[in-house]
Amino acid sequence: MMRISDLSRQSGVPVATIKFYLREQLLPPGEPTGRNQAVYDDRHLRRLQLIKVFTTLGRLDLTSVRRLLTAIADADVPVTGLYAALHQVQATSGEPTPDEAPAVAAARQDVDRLIASAGWQVPADAATRDQLATVLAAMRRLHCDASLSFFDDYVTAADQLARKQVGRLPAVEVERAEALARGLLLEEAFTAIHRLAVEHHAGQRFPSA
């Protein structure tokens, strides 16, 4: 058991923020030890570490964090539903403007074809379909190569990485919070590795004078 100051020190979360999380019920109450005093345990520490991952590395607002914590706590939400919830709050596509809508709609058809050709079974209303369509439409407005064949290598790499990621989960009794946090962190790791590779190859192709 630990006091709130110890919880703050171990988690790296300020005491004021912990108290805010307690008021907002993002963190369960501690065990009362007196008037306005309580002690906390490893459950609170793990929850704080999870929230910290979501808000810092995941760059999620607290409304999104609450949605994920609710999904984690609901045993009726399957593992696929956990990932769907994560991807829903990560989606940043938004509504296209009237001028953009036709291009986004055309790109959405291409996204559907990409998914079908990969043999993936993804719900028709998955937020990531619209997000990818928005990205493709933006690339085409900027006259970038955004043909489906351009993404063949990306599809292959993504399929292999996702297969490895999901394959590491136990077939039963998945630790739900850990699975969701791991999924988010692996996405961030892949993004960072990809950026490192781009910096390397850009330096090789366009060496500084």
Rank of each mutant, 00 (worst) to 15 (best):
A126W: 09
M2E: 00
T80V: 05
R108L: 15
R141P: 03
V53Y: 01
Y154M: 02
L45N: 00
A202S: 12
A105R: 13
A38E: 08
S149T: 14
Q49Y: 06
A137D: 04
Q121A: 14
G58N: 06
L82F: 09
P123W: 12
L22S: 07
V65G: 00
Q25V: 10
D74Y: 04
I115A: 07
Y83N: 01
H44A: 03
G167L: 04
L86M: 12
Y40V: 07
L142K: 12
D153N: 12
E175A: 15
D110S: 11
E199F: 13
P32S: 14
T191W: 03
R47I: 03
L50R: 04
R46Q: 13
I72P: 01
K52G: 03
R46A: 15
T55I: 05
A116G: 11
R141Q: 13
Q10N: 09
S208N: 10
M139D: 12
L48S: 02
L86R: 02
Y40L: 07
A116I: 07
H200V: 11
H143E: 15
V135H: 04
R163N: 11
R129C: 03
P123C: 09
P123T: 09
T156A: 15
L57R: 10
A126C: 12
S64W: 00
L50W: 01
S147I: 07
G58L: 02
D130W: 06
S8M: 07
T80C: 08
R47N: 06
A162E: 00
Q49F: 06
L57Q: 11
H44C: 01
A91P: 04
V104F: 00
Q160W: 05
R46V: 06
V15Y: 07
T134D: 08
S208M: 11
G167D: 10
R163M: 03
Q25H: 12
P170S: 10
Q204I: 07
L45E: 03
F150D: 08
Y83K: 05
L69T: 05
V111Q: 00
A75Q: 13
R113A: 10
D130K: 01
F190L: 14
D125K: 04
H44I: 02
L22D: 09
T97S: 14
D42Y: 06
R108W: 03
G81I: 08
L180I: 04
F20N: 03
Q88V: 00
D130V: 01
E188P: 02
L161H: 15
A75M: 08
R66N: 09
L60R: 00
I72F: 02
E188F: 02
F206A: 11
D159R: 12
A84K: 00
R129K: 11
L45I: 06
E100I: 06
F150Y: 12
L82T: 00
E31V: 14
R43F: 09
A105V: 12
D6N: 10
G167M: 08
S149F: 00
A179V: 03
D152Q: 13
P102R: 06
A197S: 15
V77G: 01
V89S: 04
L50G: 05
I4T: 02
L186Y: 08
F151D: 02
F190A: 15
A101F: 07
D61C: 05
A179M: 01
V39W: 04
